[in-house]
Amino acid sequence: MAYSEKVIDHYSEPRNVGSLEKSDLNVGTGLVGAPECGDVMKLQIKVDPETKEIIDAKFKTFGCGSAIASSSLATEWVKGKSIDEAMSIQNTDIVEELSLPPVKIHCSVLAEDAIKAAISDYKSRNQD
C-alpha cells in the first residue's frame, strides 16, 4: 500500500486549517460528526457574491488522520468551484484520491457531508 506523495502530504501538512468569519454573509459553515468514532468536522466556504464561485475554504477537524486528510482534500477541491460544482463532489472521489481503506470510508462521507452542510448554510443565509 504505497500512498502517493500527495496523500501523505494531506496527512502530514493539511491545507486550509482554520476559520472564516462566521458572521460574514458570504461565508457558509458546515458542522458534521461521525457517530462511528466521535469525530467532529467544521468546514467553511467563502463565496464571491458576484460570480457565486467559492473563493476560500477552511476547516477544523477533531478526528483521525484520515478525517483530517479528507477535509483537507475537500477544501482544496471546492476552491475555485461554483456552488453547484462543489455540490457534486462525492465521497467516493475522496476515497479514490486518498485510497482510503474500508475502515476509513466514513471519514470521506464526513467530508462530503461537510461540504453539503456548508453550502446549504450559505444558501439559507442568502435567500433573497
Binding site: 458542522l31 458534521v32 460528526g33 457517530p35 466521535g38 467532529v40 467544521k42 477533531f62
Partner: peptide, 18 residues
Amino acid sequence: DERSLPEGFLAEMFFLQE
C-alpha cells in the same frame, strides 16, 4: 437514523474539543 444526536449537541462537542 443512525446519526441522530440531541439538538445542538454537535456544536457543543466542537466547542468542547476547541
